[in-house]
């Protein structure tokens, strides 16, 4: 139990940016804060770094209350969303900054600082660029300088605000892989903020889904994706179809087709909306049990062959075609059989 966030609240005027947020991060854990823009991710990260003061609640590190510790003394490696590199310093100077401002007994000799900067430059694969200014770097390079600068102070935790937000897709994927390797190597408790669910699921040990200043769900990527706690999380993970269903005696049916809800109880008897992902909806011939639908488009290419179809109520739904199942034709009438669904209260 290294990092503990205990009922932290933050208000901006009458607006609650964080509403009693609690979270425990284990030593060396790689956590993703995932949520839509404005959900309070940056605010939480800034509170951890000591850049913002919570209006209520405490943050503890290894049991020590950090409330009285200023940003300066927290030793939280913070990587800003837009990097916040010192524009008038070279890359090497940027990285050395945290070491050069040390006082008293912590002061390091110049040689030692230079050696450490060299090591960090090598670590972030920018060996030859120490003399450049931030303006002369690409986005991905700036990101890595910001990271090296944060690592230079030997932080107790690493906080990254949308580390890949401003980068193009290819660079983003490369950096993602590189960051995971780096984390594995250093074992530093790391929290990174993202609004990209794929990134969070790919990278993190655990994903923290936030919305409106609250935590909606915390869990391993497979859990959050496979067993979303509520409609918001399901929606946010992507690919959600909303299908009308009947709940009776704990069984969810679609036009006579019974779906599995796994370990999630669908609640009392009623007509409800079920959530299902495309690959959990099977395309069956017309006349079989299931939701009647008309095929609008077929997408045979790509990782997952899909069809787009319209339900009787006009709603458009995506479903998968299993290997071996026949491809439906455009305009053909079919039955949709949602095999695994979730029904939220």
């Amino acid at each position: 139990m290294s990092l503990e966030i205990d009922s932290v609240s933050k208000w901006f005027g009458a607006f609650a940016a964080l509403d009693k947020v609690s979270l425990v991060g284990a030593e060396g854990e790689f956590l993703a804060l995932l949520g839509p823009s404005g959900s309070g991710k940056t605010t939480l990260l800034r509170i951890l770094a000591g850049l913002e003061r919570p209006d209520a609640g405490v943050v503890r590190f290894n049991g020590e209350d950090l409330s009285g510790t200023s940003a300066r003394d927290r030793r939280a490696g913070f990587v800003f969303q837009h990097y916040a590199l010192f524009r008038h310093m070279t890359v090497a100077k940027n990285i050395a900054f945290g070491l050069e401002v040390r006082r008293g007994a912590e002061k390091l000799p110049k040689k030692e600082i230079a050696a450490r900067v060299e090591r960090l430059l090598a670590l972030v694969q920018l060996d030859t660029l120490g003399g450049r200014y931030p303006a002369q770097l690409s986005g991905g390079q700036r990101q890595r300088v910001a990271l090296a600068r944060a690592l230079a102070i030997e932080p107790r935790m690493l906080l990254l605000d949308e580390p890949f937000g401003a980068l193009d897709a290819k660079v983003r994927r490369e950096l993602r892989r590189w960051l995971r390797g780096l984390h594995a190597e250093m074992g530093l408790t790391t929290i990174f903020v993202t609004h990209d669910q794929e990134e969070a699921l790919d990278l993190a040990d655990r994903v923290v889904v936030m919305n409106n200043g609250r935590i909606e769900q915390v869990g391993a990527p497979a859990d959050v994706y496979g067993r979303p706690a509520n409609a918001f999380v399901y929606d946010f993970m992507g690919g959600a179809n909303r299908l009308p269903c009947d709940v009776r005696g704990g069984v969810v049916t679609f036009g006579g087709f019974a779906a599995s809800t796994g370990d999630h109880a669908p609640g009392p008897d009623r007509a409800a909306l079920a959530y299902a992902r495309a690959h959990d909806i099977r395309v069956a011939p017309e006349g079989q049990p299931g939701l009647p639908a008309t095929v609008l488009a077929v997408f045979p290419a790509g990782g997952q062959p899909r069809v787009e179809c319209r339900l009787g109520d006009g709603q458009v739904v995506e479903a998968a075609v299993r290997t071996g199942d026949p491809w439906p034709a455009l305009g053909q009438r079919i039955a949709l059989q949602p095999e695994r669904v979730r029904v939220f209260e």
């Binding site: 200023s70 900054f97 401002v101 944060a150």
Partner: peptide, 16 residues
């Protein structure tokens, strides 16, 4: 304020 905040998280004091 980003650069100043960054400096603080890196351990710099106000004057620094």
């Amino acid at each position: 304020r980003d650069e100043e905040e960054a400096a603080l998280t890196l351990g710099a004091g106000g004057w620094q």
